[in-house]
Design a protein around this nucleic acid. Structure first.
Lengths: 165, 165
DNA sequence: CAGTATCCTCGCAGATACTG
DNA sequence: CAGTATCTGCGAGGATACTG
């Protein structure tokens, strides 16, 4: 069998994972959010070889997360800009970042590099809330495979495929 | 060269990506957060083969994200429970989930499965804030490679390695 | 049920040379 | 500088058989 693609899974997380659920994509997005635009800058910062970087950038462009823009009109040099879709990954990256700070370093040993643009104040943890704005703690929520959305598993996906075949 | 590990990178995001930055880990955690505990349940829901699942579960256990617990004392059957470290990945998963809902489905076509435990109300978007609690929007923040933390790149990591060698 | 133990394949990544 | 084009190979991931 070939490696399974999650792109057409009925689960939002699976689909997201299919697009950005790998190490290089996450690091590229980290740098893109930090303002990196150019191929060579990504290359030196990431230390990936050219072909890898090319491939990963193209994936992200195909996914509509990055856009290629000529540096100036009529020039073949391009820059990679985050689309709105790409920008809105900031919550996910930030959550991972904060988790990494908390759990993969000794206390206080982690670099601090995400801050408010105006005052430079450090970011606090992401806050959960309901659609109506009521704040929630972690223990207040649950992930429910509902009747309306049973299709979050491979199991149900397999059933779907079988139907069509 | 062998495939680069990000485990010892000085960047929190890189380290987080090293532990949970792959598709299977994300899906396992999704199910774990939904209450799945048993090997066979993971297996049928994910549709991964036994060896893959075993390996991935072991990685997560080694990383301290999951714990193996005997179902009952003196029995060899085990369950996989989320540790506190694992639980606190909920923000990252949720962010990815919400991003997937918004960007990988046609409008309104996505399953709704994360909700408040008490009222069943759907979750709203994660909120950014400073450590002092001041709310922020996406455009209010920036990722800054500071002098105190220049070491978030492969570049600087390579320099570090070179020093030691 | 909860995994080990094997075997196999091909995708991903690494290195490097070359082009506009 | 910004890639494309090739070559190479490790190892993740897949299938299946077998064990306590």
């Amino acid at each position: 069998m070939t490696r399974t693609s999650l792109a057409r899974y009925p689960c939002p997380l699976a689909r997201a994972a299919d697009l950005v659920g790998d190490k290089w994509a996450l690091l590229i997005l980290r740098d893109a959010l930090a303002g990196v635009r150019r191929f060579s800058d990504f290359k030196t910062r990431l230390g990936a070889s050219t072909n890898i970087l090319t491939e990963r950038l193209n994936h992200l462009v195909e996914a509509g997360i990055l856009h290629r823009k000529p540096v100036r009109p009529g020039v073949q040099r391009v820059e990679y800009h985050l689309s709105e879709k790409g920008m809105s990954l900031v919550h996910a990256l930030l959550a991972l970042w904060q988790w990494g700070e908390r759990w993969t370093f000794e206390e206080g040993k982690s670099p601090v590099t995400v801050q408010a643009r105006d005052t430079g104040e450090k970011l606090g943890p992401l806050q959960l809330q309901t659609v109506s704005g009521r704040p929630l703690s972690i223990t207040d929520i649950e992930m429910v495979p509902t009747e309306a959305a049973p299709a979050i598993t491979h199991q149900s996906y397999a059933a779907l495929k079988a139907q069509k075949a």
